[in-house]
Design a protein around this nucleic acid. Structure first.
Lengths: 211, 211
DNA sequence: GTCTATATACGGATAGAC
DNA sequence: GTCTATCCGTATATAGAC
């Protein structure tokens, strides 16, 4: 308790280097990051990185695992909550998720980039806490889908749709901003709008008759 | 004509190296690719890369520009076609796009990764042929939106939604496959399904009342 | 714990033989 | 045109002073 507060207010050198590494790795990815960049960003010397973390790779792995856990933890709990309706769950989930992404806009591209370049290497180290099929939201969706007209839709589509609508704009943000000329502030306003719009859209998708 | 056929059937060394570079760069990105990887992939020696292309960076830029042009060209024409209705346009666009992505599943992540790591560096070299606001499909969407109930929705949202629903699954494919355990074949079946489903979903989104 | 200086390895690029 | 051998800058990692 005391120790944790100390870290908050008065971070140790180790913490400061880790924070610097987190920023640089997240922005540029593993391969494009030099330990010198991290040293510079942290305000300390290059040698200290190896003193505390032994190697670039070990430091990176640590950050990666933490990122994945942040990401997963922020979501899994809600996906499995048995007391909220599907609609409420979706609403909360999306609001929460977008808030997190506005604060950490580089996170999705970072995770997808690094996972695609070494698939399975780190994913296995992280506790996902639940298999995909066991998620309570999937059960809820299946129940809902059973009442609908037309052929059934694989719940994977629904998960993909929800995540795609929320996450993709953040991944495409540099290209989007370049093409449309909108500023970062305008982009964030759009993301705020989406907190309200996406749940409506998801509902519309769920109710859409498949011809 | 003769010359182009020759390249098809009996590619020159230069072409073979470029193809190898295309594969490796697309999969791993610029920073994580070593010229030695390209040499190995091509079956030729390292020195030949510099003989034909002067430097790793020049070779990469060439590939990048070609990729961007493929990407843009496959889409812009349709977005601007004045003879098809909005619905038909969306249907065609999505089918065409997904077909292309099934053949080139690494393309989206490649483009987004490289653009985010050097924003504006190469985008400017590529002719996008149209500013975002001038696209005919945007006009069509605005007309459609004007007839709808409720507050108007920024057309940027619609473009983002369409692209997100189509592209995101390909970007997330490694993570998705790891989590759900589905195979590449099963993934492609899902993508086939989406060719029919996404246009329906987009229509539902467009017609959704915003409370 | 933190620094400077240095060892070691790796990757991009070139020289020169064939 | 294509190869082998090598150069040289840069990046990671360590030794050792303070």
């Amino acid at each position: 308790m005391e120790k944790e507060q100390e870290i908050e207010k008065n971070p140790s050198t180790e913490e400061k280097i880790k924070e610097a590494a987190r920023r640089v790795f997240t922005r540029k990815g593993y391969a494009a990051t030099r330990t010198r960049d991290i040293a510079e960003e942290s305000g300390y010397n290059l040698a200290l990185i190896n003193y505390y973390f032994r190697s670039k790779e070990k430091l990176f792995d640590m950050i990666m695992v933490e990122h994945l856990q942040t990401f997963i933890h922020s979501v899994i709990g809600m996906l499995n909550d048995r007391d909220t309706s599907l609609q409420d769950k979706i609403q909360m989930l999306i609001g929460h998720y977008i808030d997190m992404l506005v604060k950490n806009p580089d996170l999705p591209l970072f995770i997808l980039r690094e996972i695609s370049s070494s698939p399975g290497k780190l994913v296995e180290k992280v506790n996902f806490e639940a298999k995909h099929e066991d998620l309570y939201i999937i059960k809820q969706w299946k129940e809902m889908d059973a009442l609908r007209q037309g052929p059934k839709v694989n719940p994977i589509h629904m998960m993909m749709n929800m995540i795609a609508l929320v996450v993709f704009p953040f991944i495409a943000s540099p290209l989007l901003r370049d093409r449309t000329g909108i500023s970062l502030e305008e982009f964030n306003v759009l993301m705020e709008e989406r907190k309200k719009l996406i749940p409506i859209w998801i509902k519309a998708i769920m109710n859409s008759a498949t011809e």
